[in-house]
Design a protein around this nucleic acid. Structure first.
Length: 441
RNA sequence: GCGGGAGUAGCUCAAUUUGGUUAGAGCGCUUCCCUGUCACGGAAGAGGUUGCGGGUUCAAGUCCCGUCUCUCGCGCCA
């Protein structure tokens, strides 16, 4: 018999079907046994009636998470037994035969509220909970919507290398790789330099890739391994072109998440993001003035970022706010200085509900200036010859930005810790062990 | 790395400001009862070296020191 998905049972009333899935709960009534059975398409109640002697023997053995195949007749429930609060509450499966495909022994009830640490220690199990499944389905939608928006604007997706010969940003701590005999190698902390090279090839490019940062700290917003959604575009006027493009992609992402998962957001008690007609934009110094903090600080502190969210909500009905014009001294060598606001950059951060989820801006595209800027940072331009060739062979004005996928997911769903929006989070203390077969110790 | 908080049953947590009998609860688990449950219900039961090491005391889950782990905040950043 062909497998029938639980989501399709409604159209099979009266028919005998084969369903396969996992037992969620068993309610043993003595002479009758009820189950909730779920598969990828949904949940339905099954019942083993007293007349089903053979099935009853197996039914008594079943426990939560047992994987089973059942032959059953799809039956409409009598009106008094209809349960309007659950999926398929108007029908049930009258079970004739049960085959146990896999037994299960679970550490605790699936979906119970556990501490983050416990959740992470049992990921193969806890990721199966409704909440986790919803989080990562939505995350998949975010990445998909990003790609959609990019393709719609003529961007070409490319694959960025993870093994690189140096640390592009200079600041972030890179993981060293011991492999090459005579060259240093690292895991990429950003696709930045490759993105620029590719903008020279296709004008408009994007990538969704892993980045690795070995920063020695533990916070609710940092991971050693994260996913970034980056794009880079040529022939821009200035950073506002990048911001407009970013705003367009964010709006597309939010709209698609609401369209496909609006009911889930509601069930999770999460409000849809506040999207104004136009995201508010503040220069760093304006933001500092609003917050009443010193305008000589080179960046905003997390506390200030959260305060700025309050401001954006109140003044602009927005969960998003751009902050631009950070001092050039604190930014990488490729950052474009604003000719009309010397000492400050055509760069921005995008804050979403008080957390930096994106940063980007216009890059230096003039070869001579770039060499000069590398020197100013105390770096050796000859070490950047490969990258610099991009500009030597002619490069249009360009810019781009990078969105943290986990951060965006976490803010979208009001998850306090970004690790909750990461399937298998790695940080200073955590990496999955007990995977290898030859671990003898 | 620095600073707060925490570590008690499989999970989530209690254990009276001021140390005191055999460390409790809910959920889960095991066995039994139950023909309409849907977080089923009922009865009984198992389950703990209170993270680890040391100390103070007649007496330590509780106080002190060390150590490990988790968690939150901060520098940095996606």
């Amino acid at each position: 018999m062909e497998r029938t998905l639980i989501g399709d049972l409604k159209s099979k009333a009266g028919e005998r079907v084969l369903v396969q899935g996992s037992v969620s709960v068993r309610r043993d009534q003595g002479k009758m046994v009820f189950f909730d059975l779920r598969d990828r398409s949904g949940m339905a109640q099954g019942v083993v009636l007293p007349s089903e002697d053979l099935a009853m023997v197996v039914a008594k053995e079943l426990r939560p998470e047992f994987v089973v195949a059942m032959e059953a007749t799809v039956t409409e429930r009598p009106p008094k037994n209809v349960n309007p609060d659950v999926q398929n509450g108007d029908l049930e499966l009258h079970i004739h035969a049960i085959e146990i495909l896999s037994k299960a022994e679970i550490p605790f009830e699936l979906g119970s509220e556990v501490n983050l640490d416990t959740h992470l220690d049992h990921l193969p199990f806890t990721l199966r909970s409704e909440k986790s499944k919803n989080i990562f389905k939505i995350q998949a939608t975010i990445a998909e919507a990003f790609r959609e928006a990019m393709r719609g604007e003529g961007f070409v997706e490319f694959q960025s290398p993870s093994l690189v010969g140096g640390d592009a940003e200079g600041g972030a701590a890179a993981f060293k790789v011991d492999y090459y005999y005579d060259q240093k190698a690292f895991l990429a902390t950003s696709p930045q330099l490759y993105k620029q090279m590719m903008a020279g090839v296709f004008e408009r490019v994007f990538t969704v890739c892993k980045i690795f940062r070995g920063e020695k700290h533990a916070t609710t917003r940092h991971l050693s391994e994260a996913v970034c959604m980056d794009f880079e575009m040529a022939f821009i006027k200035d950073h506002h072109d990048v911001m407009d493009m970013l705003e367009h992609t964010i709006k597309h992402i939010v709209a698609k998440v609401i369209e496909e998962h609006g009911d889930v957001l509601q069930k999770m008690g999460v409000e849809a993001p506040l999207i104004p007609a136009k995201f508010p934009v503040l220069k760093l110094r304006e933001a500092q003035k609003i917050l009443g903090v010193s305008e000589s600080e080179p960046d905003l502190e997390p506390e200030h970022e959260r305060a700025l969210w309050e401001w954006a909500k109140k003044e602009h009905d927005s969960d998003f706010v751009f902050v631009t014009h950070f001092p050039i001294s604190k930014r990488p060598f490729y950052t474009y200085e604003d000719e009309e606001d010397r000492g400050y950059t055509k760069y921005f951060d995008l804050l979403f509900r008080g957390l930096e989820i994106n940063s980007g801006g216009q890059r230096v595209h003039d070869y001579t200036e770039l060499v000069e800027r590398i020197k100013q940072k105390g770096l050796d331009p000859s070490k950047f010859a490969f990258y610099l060739e991009t500009f030597k062979v002619g490069m249009p004005p360009h810019g781009g930005c990078s969105t943290g996928l986990e951060r965006m997911t976490a803010r979208m769903l009001n998850l306090p810790n970004v690790k909750e929006a990461t399937l298998f989070p790695r940080d200073l203390n955590r990496i999955d062990t007990l995977l290898s077969t030859d671990e003898k110790k």
